[in-house]
Every structure is written in structure tokens, then in C-alpha cells.
Write a protein that binds this DNA or RNA. Structure first.
Length: 483
DNA sequence: TTTTGAGTTGTTCGA
DNA sequence: GTCGAACAACTCAAA
């Protein structure tokens, strides 16, 4: 049993909280007035933990690099370790002689289990531990319906949350951190090979994003001062920067919902309905985490078990056409290419391509969920499955099955000037607006003039939407009967 | 326990 | 071009 000493270092873990401000674990460590060991643990080995997708690995590399620099300015080193959470942290604590370990809580079921193990292992060795909030406005186990169960419908969930919870004010960035002067081994970021090499597909990501706390704060400020005006309507226009773009920063904990909440209370361009709508989006994130907490297999199993009988198709060629943005439906292709190029997709576009995969192509929502998991910089274990299931109809509070997005109508409605399609599908940019969303209906001479050869320079539609819609409705009927 | 009101984001058809 | 109704009943949450 180690002897505790007043000067034993305090260890602070970083995981999905790559920030210094509103970091309660770091604040608590500072208050101890003892040397601080900061460590990031990459755990892809604890049971059930889902390895990060490629886009998030890219982001993680740069976010860790930013965090390392921020800590360095305050004299602290970030120790990098890789391995199962409990064993890795226990070993590091011992090497550093730490008698206290603090962390901010995680909410993925497998990560909760890993952290529970870690806590037990540390306490067994007589270390002091404490965990803190930060990732979510509310603890998913706390909010219950009148009859004691978890909420399954968003609106009552949100009402209860808004009424019940006054989010705490965010904590300031701690000053005067006492660095740990001892020596412990650390991996280097390069050791982890988080960046793509062969090929390097990250150029579009580099051009689009600034991972790290500074980038997150800048994005929030820009959004609240100018870009956020008219949010409620503008957020649906795919060719405009009408959304906050905060999702990857939130996913990595470079900013907290508490900080966003407080910023919305201040002087911003987001007023009235705009502000309420944006807060609601934060609420959806909370709701998804709440659902995942109560349904640990949300990412792989139908929330509504009736859908276990659904006759999903298997068609790898069709899946690949969807992934590559070669479906022949311009708005779908623009969206899939935006995802591939920038690691992100506009919210409305996500619904359109999801509806297309699940309903027009009849492929399982899990195949879409997996692709998004790998390609999205904001891939989130709660929101990703919840929203895929929502579109598929198997999820909580799901869209009725007869809501099948028409990719042409959606394009005309939410990309009326064609900025979005032209930005990502340049081979048809010369088409006039009227035919941009359905090139196959354009007269031959117009296609000629625009330099388009259907089936050659741009694909013909891979399915006929009307017929596909009928097939989807039939398939859903068969589930209904079975259920 | 029973009842009642309501439920993110849509599309198509026919007047 | 625009508008309202139908789509198909179902489950949840709260009174």
C-alpha cells in the first residue's frame, strides 16, 4: 500500500474533453494545489468500445496536438498512453506516484463500464477518485417520466429537461497549474498513426476545420455574432453556412453544452425562435445520449423490435454508388461527396441521403450508420444510430414510415439556387436551376450544351424514385403484418 | 386505471 | 401554382 503524501501528484484524464475551460476535473485538480499529471488515454481495447472511425482519428490527432500546445503554455506535459482504460491508468498513476485521479464522465455504455472498472481498480489501490460532468447538461440516469421510466418521445423529454434543469454556469479555465516535474514515459502522437497516409484523403478536412478548443470557441463566436441570424429557416438551406458547425467540437469535448447555453443567454444575433430552435438541437443531442444510455445496443439493434423482420436488401454495388456519390440524384451525390471531402454533411442532407439508402435502395440502416461512423468528424455513438434509426422508422419517436424523402423535391426546396449541388457535383454545374436536380429530364440539347453525357460523365438515376417508394411502402407493410 | 392529447424535419393527390 | 387532406393507426406521457 503506497503512503499518501500531501505533495503526491493529482492525475487528470483527458478523453472526450479536449479542453481547458469548463473542465471540472482539471479545476478540481488545481484546487488541490498539488502537481498535476495530465494524460490522454486512447482506449480501443476495453470490451465493447467501438474503435474510432478514420475521420475522427484525423480530428483526434489535431485536437490532441492543440491540447498539448495549450498545456505546454502552462508548463504542463500531456502524457499519451494507449490501452485498456483501467490497466493503463492504474499503471500510469503508479509510475507517477499519483494518489488522486480525476476525470470527466463518459456516457457510451461500453465506456461507462470501462470507467467503472477503472474506478474500482484505483480504489482498490487506495487512490482517491472523482468524476465530473461536462459532456451533457443532464445525467441520463436522472431524468425520468412521471411513471419512472426513460423518455422515448423528444418533446416531453425536452420540456422536462428545460423545466427541471438550470444548467450550471461553465467553469473558467484554471490558472496557476502546478506542473508535475517527475518523469513518466509517453507515446508520441506519431506513434499512433491517426493520420491517413496512403492515400492522404484529409485535404478537404484540413481546409474546412480547425480542431481544438480555440477553433471551437471561434466557431461559436462567429455563429452567435452574425451567422446565426435567421437560424430557424437558414439552417435548412444546404448551400449556406446556416448551421453552427459545432458538432465535431462537441463530440471531442472541445466545447461544452454548458458554455453554449450560457453564450446563448448573452448578447447574440440568435433571438426568439432562432435561439429556441438552436437550443432544441442541443436538446436532440442530449436526447440521443439519453436513449443510448437506456438502450446500450442502440448502434446495432432495432429500437423497435418489429423491424427485426424487415426484408432489408443486400447490394454492395448499390452501397458503393451511394458511398461514392454516384447515385444519379444530384442532391444525394452532392451530400455524399461533401461527407467524403470535408468529413461533415449538412443536417438536412443527412436525412435525404439516409432516406435514400434505407428507402430507395432498401439497404439496412446499419450500413449507413457504419459509413457515417467512419467518415464523419462528428461521428457520435449516440446521435449517429439514433438518427439512422429515426429515418429508418425503427427508432424512438421515429418518422412515420410513409415519410419517404423525394430527393428531387428536397433539392428544389432546400437548394433552390443549386449552390450545394454545383459545389460538389461540378460535372453538371452548367445545367440551369430548373433541371439541376433531375438532369435526366433535361432536353437532349440542353445536356449537350452543358457538356453532360448521362451514363458517362454523370450517372443516370440508379433507381426510379417512384417505383422505389412503392417497394419501400410494400416492405414496411410486411413488417407491420409480422409485428 | 383509464383517458386524452400529441407526436422534428414529408409526399402525393386532387380540387 | 397553391392548398388541404390523406397517409394508418400507434405509442407515449401526463392528467
Amino acid at each position: 500500500m503506497p503512503t499518501k503524501n500531501e505533495r503526491d501528484p493529482v492525475m487528470v484524464l483527458f478523453r472526450h474533453d479536449l479542453r481547458l475551460s469548463d473542465n471540472l476535473a482539471l479545476c478540481a485538480a488545481t484546487e488541490k494545489n498539488r502537481p498535476i499529471v495530465t494524460a490522454f488515454i486512447l482506449d480501443e481495447q476495453s470490451e465493447g468500445v467501438r474503435p474510432l472511425g478514420g475521420a475522427r482519428r484525423w480530428w483526434l490527432h489535431h485536437s490532441l496536438s492543440a491540447l498539448t500546445a495549450d498545456l505546454q503554455k502552462r508548463g504542463l506535459k500531456l502524457v499519451l498512453r494507449r490501452g485498456p482504460m483501467a490497466e493503463t491508468v492504474t499503471a500510469l498513476a503508479e509510475e507517477a506516484g499519483a494518489s488522486t485521479v480525476y476525470w470527466n464522465r463518459r456516457y457510451d455504455p461500453a465506456e461507462i463500464a470501462a470507467d467503472t472498472d477503472m474506478k474500482a481498480a484505483l480504489r482498490e489501490r487506495d487512490l482517491e477518485t472523482e468524476s465530473f460532468s461536462g459532456h451533457l447538461l443532464h445525467e441520463p440516469w436522472r431524468l425520468k417520466t412521471g411513471s419512472g421510466g426513460p423518455y422515448r418521445v423528444f418533446t416531453p423529454f425536452w420540456r422536462a429537461l428545460v423545466e427541471a434543469v438550470h444548467p450550471r454556469p461553465p467553469a473558467d479555465r484554471p490558472e496557476n497549474l502546478t506542473p508535475f516535474e517527475g518523469k513518466v514515459a509517453t507515446d508520441t502522437l506519431e506513434d499512433w498513426h491517426l493520420l491517413p497516409t496512403k492515400p492522404d484523403w484529409a485535404k478537404g478536412l484540413r481546409d474546412t476545420w480547425t480542431p481544438g478548443e480555440t477553433g471551437a470557441q471561434r466557431r461559436l463566436t462567429e455563429f452567435l455574432q452574425g451567422r446565426g441570424d435567421g437560424y430557424k429557416a437558414r439552417r435548412d438551406v444546404m448551400g449556406e453556412a446556416g448551421t453552427s458547425g459545432l458538432s465535431p467540437h462537441l463530440a471531442h469535448g472541445e466545447i461544452t453544452p454548458f458554455q453554449i447555453w450560457q453564450a446563448l443567454d448573452g448578447d447574440t444575433d440568435l433571438a426568439g425562435e432562432d435561439a429556441r430552435t438552436f437550443r432544441k438541437e442541443i436538446g436532440w443531442r442530449e436526447f440521443c445520449w439519453h436513449l443510448l444510455f437506456h438502450n446500450p445496443k442502440f448502434a446495432t439493434e432495432n429500437f423497435n423490435r418489429d423491424f427485426d423482420a424487415f426484408p432489408w436488401q443486400r447490394d454492395d454495388k448499390a452501397l458503393r454508388a451511394w458511398q461514392r456519390g454516384q447515385t444519379g440524384y444530384p442532391v444525394v451525390d452532392a451530400a455524399m461527396r461533401q461527407l467524403w471531402q470535408t468529413g461533415w454533411m449538412h443536417n438536412r442532407a443527412r436525412m435525404i441521403v439516409a432516406s435514400f439508402l434505407v428507402k430507395d435502395l432498401g439497404l439496412h440502416w446499419r450500413q449507413g450508420e457504419e459509413w457515417f461512423w467512419d467518415t464523419l468528424v462528428d461521428a457520435d455513438p449516440a446521435s449517429n444510430p439514433a438518427n439512422w434509426q429515426w429515418v429508418a422508422g425503427s427508432g424512438a419517436d421515429a418518422a412515420p414510415f410513409f415519410r419517404i424523402f423525394n430527393p428531387v423535391l428536397q433539392g428544389e426546396k432546400f437548394d433552390p439556387k443549386g449552390n450545394y449541388v454545383r459545389g460538389f457535383v461540378p460535372e453538371i454545374e452548367a445545367l440551369p436551376d430548373k433541371h439541376l436536380h433531375q438532369p435526366w429530364k433535361a432536353p437532349a440539347e440542353m445536356l449537350d450544351k452543358a457538356g453532360i453525357k448521362l451514363g458517362d460523365t454523370y450517372p443516370r438515376p440508379m433507381v426510379d424514385h417512384k417505383a422505389a417508394r412503392e417497394r419501400a411502402l410494400e416492405a414496411y407493410k410486411s413488417v407491420k403484418k409480422a409485428g
